[in-house]
Simulated assay, not measured.
Amino acid sequence: MSRRIAVVGAGMAGARFAQQYRALGGDGEVVLYGAEPRGPYNRVLLAEVLAGRYDPEAIALDCGAGTRVRRGCEVTALDLTERRLRLSGGGTAPYDDLVLATGANPVLPPLSGLHGPHGLKAGVHALRTLADCARLAEDAARATRAVVIGGGVLGIGAARALAALGLPVEIVHQAPHLVERHLDEQAGQVLRGFLADLGVETYPGNRARALHGPDRVTGVRLASGYLLEADLVVLACGVRPRTGLARTAGIAVGSGVVVDDLLAASAPGVHAIGDCAEHRGTVHGLAGPAWDQADLLAARLAGTAPDARYTGSRPLARLSAGPLEYAAFGEVGEDVPGTDVLRLVDPTRGSYKKLVLRGDRLVGGILLGDLAAVGGLARAYERDDPLPENPLDLLTTT
Score class of each variant (00 low, 15 high):
residue 329 F to L: 15
residue 209 R to F: 08
residue 393 D to V: 09
residue 268 P to E: 14
residue 329 F to W: 14
residue 84 R to I: 01
residue 207 R to M: 12
residue 80 L to Y: 10
residue 29 E to A: 13
residue 77 A to N: 07
residue 174 Q to T: 14
residue 126 A to V: 15
residue 32 L to P: 00
residue 38 R to L: 01
residue 385 D to E: 15
residue 55 D to T: 15
residue 7 V to F: 09
residue 15 A to L: 03
residue 379 R to Y: 10
residue 144 T to V: 13
residue 32 L to M: 01
residue 75 V to P: 05
residue 288 G to Q: 15
residue 6 A to C: 07
residue 151 G to C: 13
residue 390 N to C: 08
residue 311 T to E: 15
residue 64 G to Y: 01
residue 224 S to T: 15
residue 371 L to S: 02
residue 62 D to Q: 11
residue 19 Q to D: 12
residue 8 V to T: 08
residue 31 V to G: 05
residue 305 A to W: 12
residue 360 D to N: 15
residue 155 G to I: 08
residue 239 V to E: 06
residue 238 G to M: 10
residue 188 G to V: 11
residue 210 A to Y: 04
residue 29 E to K: 00
residue 85 L to Q: 09
residue 257 V to R: 03
residue 137 A to P: 04
residue 42 N to I: 01
residue 276 C to K: 07
residue 105 N to F: 07
residue 93 A to V: 01
residue 189 Q to I: 11
residue 173 H to D: 07
residue 294 A to W: 02
residue 73 C to V: 09
residue 282 T to I: 14
residue 349 R to C: 11
residue 283 V to L: 03
residue 62 D to T: 09
residue 127 L to P: 10
residue 180 E to A: 13
residue 79 D to E: 14
residue 134 A to P: 13
residue 155 G to K: 00
residue 367 L to I: 04
residue 116 G to F: 12
residue 363 V to D: 01
residue 26 G to M: 06
residue 255 S to I: 13
residue 91 G to C: 08
residue 100 L to I: 05
residue 303 G to E: 07
residue 193 G to V: 02
residue 354 K to C: 02
residue 129 T to K: 08
residue 259 V to R: 02
residue 39 G to M: 04
residue 224 S to N: 13
residue 51 A to M: 06
residue 18 A to E: 04
residue 109 P to C: 09
residue 365 G to H: 10
residue 99 V to L: 14
residue 185 E to P: 10
residue 171 I to H: 02
residue 200 V to E: 04
residue 383 R to E: 15
residue 378 A to K: 10
residue 290 A to Y: 03
residue 216 R to H: 09
residue 276 C to H: 05
residue 157 G to Q: 03
residue 249 A to Y: 09
residue 170 E to F: 09
residue 317 A to S: 15
residue 79 D to R: 10
residue 108 L to A: 04
residue 27 D to S: 14
residue 185 E to F: 06
residue 151 G to N: 05
residue 388 P to A: 04
residue 271 H to S: 12
residue 209 R to Q: 15
